[in-house]
Amino acid sequence: MNIHEALYTTRMMRRLRPDPIPLESQARILDAAVRAPNGGNTQRWHFVAVDDPALIRKFAQLFRKARDVEYHKFANGSGPMAAPAPGADPAAHADTMRRMKVSGDYLADHFEELPLLIFVFAIDDLGGANIYPAIWSLLLAAHAEGVGGVMTMVLRNVEDRVDELLGVPVAQGWKMSAMLALGYPRGTWGVAANRRPVQEVSSRNSWDGPFGVDVPQPLWPPQREAIPALSAAG
């Protein structure tokens, strides 16, 4: 798999098989994650891998409870992504949220079957500047191993209980950034088709300045007919 294939086809996978992930694969996935760039190479991160079925069952109960909290906030219009982004189509946003909830329902209903959870912790992370590159590297490396996954922050609604179950030394400043559910996907990899094109979400030299190039379709995989279509705009 070349880098463009990895970048274009890695996506969040919530429908995962229960097959265990070999320790060798887990090691390669996390070894790639810790190579990610981070401020001053201070490596202020910690990853907790959970594959104990009894512990996963406890997190399943917590996940469903935390998800109820999240969707209660969403229903009240106070949750993240409750409103569409400025300029986005409200109907398309509502459809995206509906599809995300359906796949999230599957994850919640089958949480006990997950073979591997990875909890990601950081300290003094400046809004995620150090940890999110590592998380993305982790997901890319997982894809290279044939493993899918999804990043979720839902359990931050009950993070005190998460800290307790994992024995996190919170007094030192460690805070959960996210949880990753990993497993071999039931679905297939593919280029995300529901993205607004580059020229609609990018500008040049000022907020309202035209980007200058139209990208009418994904530029990977390369298609001969796509080259003439990539033209100067404006």
Rank of each mutant, 00 (worst) to 15 (best):
I131A: 05
D52I: 06
G187Y: 01
P37R: 07
T188I: 06
F59K: 02
K175Q: 14
A82D: 00
A142R: 08
L155T: 03
D51H: 09
E24R: 03
P115Y: 13
A91Y: 02
V201C: 04
L126Y: 11
R35G: 02
D89G: 02
A33S: 00
A192Q: 10
Q223K: 15
L182E: 12
A233T: 04
A134T: 12
K65E: 15
A6P: 00
N76F: 01
A181L: 01
P86M: 04
K65R: 14
A75M: 01
P210G: 10
V120K: 05
A171E: 15
S206F: 02
R67V: 03
E5M: 00
L139E: 13
S177C: 05
L180A: 02
E70I: 01
N41K: 11
T152Q: 11
F211S: 03
A33H: 01
G39Y: 06
F47Y: 14
D95V: 06
T10C: 02
E159Q: 14
M151T: 11
W45A: 07
H143F: 11
F59W: 05
A229M: 15
V158Y: 05
G39K: 06
H110A: 06
P115T: 12
A33Q: 00
P53F: 13
M97T: 11
M97R: 15
T42P: 00
E112K: 06
D31E: 10
Y132L: 09
V198K: 05
V50H: 06
H110F: 11
L166M: 08
A122F: 04
A85S: 08
T42D: 06
R67F: 04
F211G: 02
A171I: 10
V147H: 01
V198I: 14
R57T: 13
G127N: 11
Y132I: 08
G190F: 08
K58R: 15
K175V: 10
P216C: 14
V170A: 07
P53I: 14
R11L: 02
L180S: 01
W220Q: 02
D19N: 14
A232E: 10
I56W: 04
L107T: 11
S231L: 03
R99M: 04
S203V: 04
K73V: 00
Y184L: 04
A60C: 13
G87M: 11
L140V: 12
K101L: 10
R156K: 10
D31F: 01
